[in-house]
Design a binder for these strands. Structure first.
Lengths: 194, 194
DNA sequence: TTATATACGGAGATACTCTCCGTTTACCAA
DNA sequence: TTGGTAAACGGAGAGTATCTCCGTATATAA
């Protein structure tokens, strides 16, 4: 009678597991920010006060951990696309979102591989994030194309790849500024000649 | 009396040293192409038929080895800049060289870190290559700016970084084509409005 | 309270990087 | 030719990182 309904997953997750998961994510975020994506996983486990086994149970690979760490930020970035699309004219919205994207990159310091995976659509692990981001920019680009303001025979993701190439190369704030200047060049380059 | 003249470097390098150097470079090139820049150095040494110590004596770090492997290709790329500058009008020369640059990237498969280092000017080790490449593109860009054909308030290297971001992300020929399309967008974006 | 699914921890197997130093060898001079 | 010697060699091993395995502990449900 008091059955939970489905045949699977009756028990709710243990509290200690959830606690450790959160601790690991926080510790990992700090470690990645400080030492880049190559930070020692054993050390992250130790700092978080758990055994190595626990870390690997929660996050089987380095990438899985990294992906989890940045999940939230990616979600926010994607959400912003809708907001901008409703607020601004097509090209402006696109431009503003690209600026946000550069900020997003900037939080990922030495983690170019991760970023490449997200934006490159290479790794299976990030496929969800990639799809989200891809959809977000595709929407903005499509709108601008339909309005007749731009032409683009290029995967919209390539715009992000270009920005990432400039911003995420380890020259800190300089790269960020350069990427933002590049945005205007790209916009000018895809603007439809009348 | 039969003194070699200078106070330094009298003896010519030993033949076995040179032989091993060459063997290591060949083996490393193959290994990097097959397994990416993370290939095991000990294994490269073993395959080349030398001890680990020998490898590390010739190339103290992984990057040193990688840099040596790609030295030739970089040299060729740089040399092409002069040739193009003499042959074509400014913007065409720039465009052609960017196309060559994309080809150059394409030979570096999974080695995005290396490429980033060369084009990013981050690593001390690649500073020579970086300087060369920087000078090559600066020359082409300057010429085009002086002719009044383009405007660019951006480090010319950033153009290469953008292309690298698109091409060297692990999508093979697709990335190459995308990068070549991006070239036209960039050129259009920096073309001076009249 | 008890049974048990779930999660934990950390020792240890494996792999990689890089160093150190005793041994070997190519080169030069006589 | 023949030493003498600077230069180069090789590989054992120290240090470090990844990831697994399994005996132990515990949160949850009944």
């Amino acid at each position: 009678m008091a059955d939970e309904g489905d045949s699977t997953a009756v028990r709710k997750p243990r509290a200690d597991a959830e606690r450790n998961r959160v601790r690991l994510l926080e510790t990992a975020k700090a470690a990645f920010a400080e030492k880049g994506s190559g930070a020692s996983l054993d050390e992250i486990a130790r700092t978080a006060g758990v055994g190595a086994g626990t870390l690997y149970r929660h996050f089987p690979t380095r990438d899985a951990l990294v992906a989890a760490v940045y999940r939230n930020e990616t979600d926010q970035l994607v959400a912003a696309a809708d907001r901008l699309a409703e607020t601004y004219p097509p090209v402006t919205a696109l431009r503003e979102w690209l600026l946000l994207f550069v900020d997003y990159i900037a939080t990922k310091h030495g983690m170019s591989e991760v970023l490449n995976s997200i934006v490159g659509g290479t790794s299976e692990l990030y496929s969800a994030s990639t799809a989200q981001v891809k959809q977000a920019i595709a929407k903005l680009v499509d709108r601008a194309v339909l309005s007749g303001d731009i032409r683009l025979e290029l995967d919209p993701l390539d715009l992000l790849r270009a920005l990432a190439g400039v911003a995420n190369i380890g020259l800190g704030p300089d790269g960020e500024r350069a990427a933002k200047r590049l945005i205007d060049i790209l916009i000018a380059g895809i603007r439809a000649r009348r």
